[in-house]
Simulated scan of single mutants.
Amino acid sequence: MKTRLTKSEMEIMEVLWDEGKALTTSEIIQRSKEKEKEWKDSSVHSAYKKFNEQRCYQSRGI
């Protein structure tokens, strides 16, 4: 099944792909600041939940 991601979700996935390893919400937020973009904690949690539901990405201990 094809999954469509929002622009922000895609940016979060790119942070994960660039890093090449699992990141905590805090680490993702820190990386976003480095890219002059800042996500809220709730936004990252929502994206992780969607990724897990759609099996785009599997995280541990949301």
Rank of each mutant, 00 (worst) to 15 (best):
1 M>L: 07
1 M>P: 04
1 M>T: 15
2 K>E: 13
3 T>L: 13
3 T>N: 09
4 R>T: 08
6 T>F: 10
9 E>F: 09
9 E>M: 07
10 M>W: 04
11 E>C: 02
12 I>V: 11
13 M>S: 07
14 E>S: 07
14 E>H: 11
14 E>C: 02
16 L>R: 02
16 L>S: 08
16 L>C: 08
16 L>A: 12
17 W>A: 13
18 D>I: 09
18 D>K: 08
19 E>F: 00
19 E>N: 12
21 K>R: 12
22 A>L: 10
22 A>W: 03
22 A>K: 05
22 A>E: 03
22 A>Y: 01
24 T>K: 08
24 T>W: 01
25 T>V: 15
25 T>H: 00
26 S>H: 03
28 I>S: 01
28 I>K: 01
29 I>T: 01
33 K>S: 05
33 K>P: 03
34 E>Q: 10
34 E>F: 05
34 E>N: 09
35 K>S: 10
35 K>C: 09
35 K>P: 05
38 E>T: 09
39 W>G: 01
39 W>Y: 14
40 K>E: 07
42 S>L: 09
44 V>I: 03
45 H>A: 07
45 H>Y: 15
46 S>I: 01
46 S>K: 14
46 S>E: 13
46 S>A: 15
47 A>W: 03
47 A>L: 04
48 Y>A: 05
50 K>P: 08
50 K>Y: 12
51 F>Y: 07
53 E>S: 08
53 E>D: 15
54 Q>A: 12
54 Q>L: 13
54 Q>E: 15
54 Q>G: 06
55 R>F: 09
55 R>I: 15
56 C>N: 07
57 Y>H: 11
58 Q>W: 10
58 Q>K: 15
59 S>N: 12
60 R>D: 09
60 R>T: 07
60 R>C: 12
